[in-house]
């Protein structure tokens, strides 16, 4: 059983002592940041109830989760976003839900966050670059938002868009990826309970480098599908274009489900390096979420629809 109900799992159970101490130290420096009015001043607590959608695996240290990021708008090196996203303004923030639906809506962050009770879910995260982490995210199922807008029969897919501002993201150009960043899901994927609209991690609001103030987490897909800093969610009829597919069509598929059988031209996908571990581990089909999501793809040739 890969996912189990673990209502009273604490970080101290799933995090090694040293990592836990690292975290304490981080919190202490965050507190110092508050005193100095630095970027860390934003780190605010986020209350969330425990969720059954949680894996009982060692959580990756906070330092790695917030220091090793792909967020090309803030630079293409893994440590760039932590360095460069600190000043990014996430207030005010508006998310527009539009397209083929009966009730389009615009939410400010607060009203969006209050649509449903926040849950903490510990998910595996598998990057297409063959590394992985385990992250305690905070959010609720995206379906809570989508169903309120009452998608019509024409709504077959959901398209997402990231905020883009070349003034606030002066390093974005060097990445050469077309911006704003776009992603998409099939409607049934978007409505799946595992698909998490995410506001926080490790008990706090999302740090900027992790896609503040609100992002997607789709745990059975490669990380680049989990779009950050969302401003637009639209119901569309056709499979929407997505950034990496526009950039390098023969390497990135729309589905991009984690699949050890289908190699990427640059990385073998059969195994992965869990951040913090020395040996590699085998990559699991659908990142270990096959029981929950395999039925979405019944009858599909996943080698073709990679």
């Amino acid at each position: 059983m890969l996912i189990r109900s673990a209502p009273d799992l604490k970080y101290s159970d799933v995090t090694s002592k040293k990592d836990f101490l690292d975290r304490r130290r981080f919190l202490a420096s965050a507190a110092a940041g508050v005193a100095l009015g630095g970027p860390a001043a934003q780190a605010a607590k986020l209350e969330a109830r425990k969720s059954g959608y949680t894996v009982a695996e060692t959580v990756t240290p906070l330092k790695a989760i917030t220091g090793y990021n792909n967020y090309y708008e803030f630079g293409t090196n893994k440590d760039d976003p932590a360095r460069n996203a600190g000043e990014f303004r996430t207030e005010p923030w508006q998310v527009s839900v539009e397209g083929h639906c009966a009730k389009p809506a615009k939410y400010d962050l607060d009203s969006l966050r209050k649509l449903a009770p926040l849950e903490e879910r510990i998910y595996r995260l598998r990057c297409v670059e063959a590394w992985s982490m385990v992250v305690p995210w905070i959010g609720f199922s995206l379906s809570e938002v989508l169903k309120r807008s009452e998608p019509t029969s024409k709504a077959k897919y959901v398209a997402f868009e990231t905020y883009y501002d070349s003034k606030q993201m002066p390093l974005a150009k060097g990445s050469r990826i077309p911006l704003p960043y776009k992603e998409g899901l099939r409607l049934d994927e978007a409505m799946h309970p595992l698909t998490l609209l995410t506001f926080g991690l490790y008990g706090e609001v999302l740090p900027n480098q992790n896609g503040a103030p609100v992002r997607m987490i789709i745990p059975w897909k490669y990380g680049f599908k989990s779009i950050k800093s969302i401003v637009k969610i639209s119901f569309v009829e056709k499979e929407p274009p997505f950034t990496w597919g526009i950039m390098i069509p023969n390497e990135y598929g729309f589905y991009s489900n984690v699949n050890p059988e289908v190699d990427h031209p640059r990385w073998s996908q059969g195994s992965e390096r869990r951040i913090g571990e020395f040996s590699k581990r085998k990559t699991l089909m659908f990142n270990g979420y096959a029981d929950q999501v395999a039925s979405l793809y019944a009858g599909m040739d996943l080698k073709k629809h990679y």
Binding site: K78, R273, I275
Partner: peptide, 12 residues
């Protein structure tokens, strides 16, 4: 490496 100063993914 000895001071554990190579970031989250030292091997990379």
């Amino acid at each position: 490496a000895w001071r554990d100063n190579l970031g989250a993914n030292p091997i990379e």
